[in-house]
Computed example of a mutant assay.
Amino acid sequence: MLFYRLISSALLLPVVKVLSSSSAMALSSNVEKQCRGMSGMTRYLNQVEAAALDQELFTEYKFSVDQLMELAGLSVATAVAQAYPPTSYSSALIVCGPGNNGGDGLVAARHMALFGYKVAVHYPKRTPKPLYENLLEQCCKFGIHIVDKLLEPNELKNEYQVLVDALFGFSFKPPVREELKPALDALIDGGLPVCSVDIPSGWHVEDGPSSDHSLKPALLISLSAPKLCAKDEYLKGAKHYLGGRFLPPAIVKKYNLTLPEYPAQDQVVQLC
């Protein structure tokens, strides 16, 4: 009886493998079709539109900077948790810059700590404003380790399993300041999955990467609406999420955003 089972298993194994392979190929094909469909229906913003939309949220719709930062940071943390769950990627390093992207990263760090990650923050150039000082203090109160000196890029794998890139946003203009180069090098050469906030650090918001050695994230979390650089071939194979379930309907209509619907009560939607 046992011999029969062994023979049966041996005969069936190639069939199972073929079926599994076919299922995987079908699943991959469906994902690619979904990505193409999402990309086709979603509108991407240029630099002028992205800046104007942000400004309008502040002036016309009376959102405060800290209010939008909290919403953006929660979206980032949610997208990271969906793509790289803490059950498999338990330790995370968030690299924060001096601008709004850095503030989003500080908020995301707090939420990721609540989601179950062991979180550290590297914040090499701190912004001397109450909002940023308060966000950093909150991180400390939540037990988040503040890293003053980064490990060498090839050593980051010894401490972390995923990196969050909150270094530069869409208003970045080269060159990279000397004090921030080690942070960008860590993201580029760390050999870990990188999750970029809004646009990959160092990229032009429309033209994309400046060289073949630019940052190539494994996950991009667009905020409000995707920017033109998100279409760049350099991002091929990367996961792409949108976090912007806070836009007033009138602004969506004005900018003809044609955004996908968010599932259930989710703060993010996967585009690809």
Rank of each mutant, 00 (worst) to 15 (best):
D198N: 07
I7D: 13
L242P: 10
L167C: 02
H240W: 12
L167T: 01
A24I: 00
L131E: 13
P128C: 06
H240I: 05
P263C: 07
V48Y: 13
M38D: 04
Q47I: 07
L27W: 10
A113C: 11
K231D: 03
I7K: 15
L235K: 03
L187C: 08
L150C: 11
K181A: 14
L220D: 09
G99W: 01
F63E: 09
K253N: 09
D212T: 04
H213S: 14
R5C: 09
L223M: 06
R126L: 10
K17W: 10
K253Q: 14
E56Q: 12
S211L: 02
L13P: 01
A50P: 01
A51L: 08
V194Q: 07
G99D: 09
K236S: 15
L271M: 04
L68R: 03
K181S: 13
P14D: 11
P153K: 04
L11M: 08
L271F: 11
I146T: 06
A108D: 13
V76T: 06
F168D: 03
Y61H: 14
H145M: 10
D54F: 01
E133V: 04
Y123G: 09
K129L: 08
L271Y: 04
L71A: 10
L135V: 00
R245N: 15
N154W: 00
S8A: 14
G202T: 02
R36D: 14
Q82C: 12
R245K: 15
V205M: 10
V268A: 12
D54N: 10
Q55E: 15
E60W: 00
